[in-house]
Amino acid sequence: MSDSIKKTLFASGHTACAGCGQSLAARLVLEVCGPNTIIANNTGCLEVFSTKYPESAWCVPWIHSLFENSAAVASGIEAALKFLGKKQNINVICQAGDGGTGDIGMQALSGMWERGHDILSICYDNEAYENTGIQRSGLTPYDASTTTSPAGAQSFGNPRPKKPVPEIANAHGIVYVAIASVGYPQDLQKKVKKALSLKGPKYLQIHVPCPLGWGHATELTYQIARLAVQAGLYPLIEYENGELVSSFKITPKPVEEYLKLQRRFRHVLNNSEEIARIQETANKNIKKYNLVVKNN
């Protein structure tokens, strides 16, 4: 192994599935954070595949306690650093999957945001409880087939729309809320940098394809992440103090282009009514966040 591979702060040898978008995003995030970073991590794939005991892929201080409490753990770390007068140069991060963030971890997270801790919370959004076998979460998109929302004769998969966690974060009046994607690594890293430059609570949600749970070829992780953005289903937007300050412009592609590469949406491909419903979600995003540049 050469020196440059040895220097990465998120080490090789982790046990994520081949092509895992979450493992890629974790490395990209940590590259920006640098060594002066302390991370609290909820339970989930990221926690499991990065710390197969007695090993760890993390080269920064990293703590795991429970599925629901990384925001509480991070709050304690931040308060202690402040007391010691050491907070200035240290980034505190709490991170989780979509289930850990938007469902079970929401109470601790809401408390952390409301108390105004200087912490960046990151949601690695793979749109289901992947680590325990692909159960639907509040962030699973409409019509996705999961083991607890299986598509079949009686169902088109998940019957509910995606929970708007960025809006919930914004309702707390926090300094920075942004959505990013592993399909746009530069934009992602820019947002991490921006978040860390601001004092107070920050929320960053990153779209991370999961080849196992979404049922796509391992080499397509990057392309699928990009298609979600280009279809308008995963808008890359940024808020400062509740104001929308940027939205990534797209030339919209039909949602089918994104859906057809994934087994979780296979059942809707021949159903124009369901496709139209999904397209409507994309169209709403395009309008709401002004995703298309108009010439004239």
């Binding site: 192994m1 040895k6 040898g13 990065s50 197969k52 090993e55 760890s56 993390w58």
Partner: peptide, 11 residues
């Protein structure tokens, strides 16, 4: 666990 010890796993 010690930092970066996952490198022991030859995946």
């Amino acid at each position: 666990a010690k930092p970066g010890t996952s490198r022991k796993n030859k995946t």
